[in-house]
Amino acid sequence: MRNLWLRGKFHLSALVILVPLPFLPAYFADKPLPHVAEIHRQVVAGPFSLGLVTEDQPPDRGAWGERIKEYTVTFRPGDMDTIRGVFLRVGKPRSLRTLGALAEGGAYEQHADVMLPDELSGSEDLWLTVETWNGTLHQAVVPLREILGGSGK
């Protein structure tokens, strides 16, 4: 037994090859499975019903210490034929120039990095603005604590 250990211990690194095995089914799944829990909300902005998704994790820190939360917006088929863009912002936008972070991505799923204030009172709202090709704005409001993730702070 001791002899086996002496001879075999340096081949143990071969066990690393087993590491990818448990991840294979998820990797070859049709839709990649989320690796952390997610928060899902369906929001309605005018004629549009959009999915709002975020990881159930506290916000990230950017390079300069700013607090950032990434949101995913999902669309129904045909929605993006009339939508110019979707913007997300904490707090009510005051003008067309301050609609917030522009969601970027494909026709069915887009992502936006939303800046958060350093201190949250818990009463903030996430404002989602849909701008259509004819220039109309449609808005939806979600209490931020419901869609912040982590412990909601």
Binding site: F10, H11, L12, S13, A14, V16, I17
Partner: peptide
Amino acid sequence: AMPIWAFLFF
């Protein structure tokens, strides 16, 4: 390299 040879090989 020896203690991790199989990982490196892979």
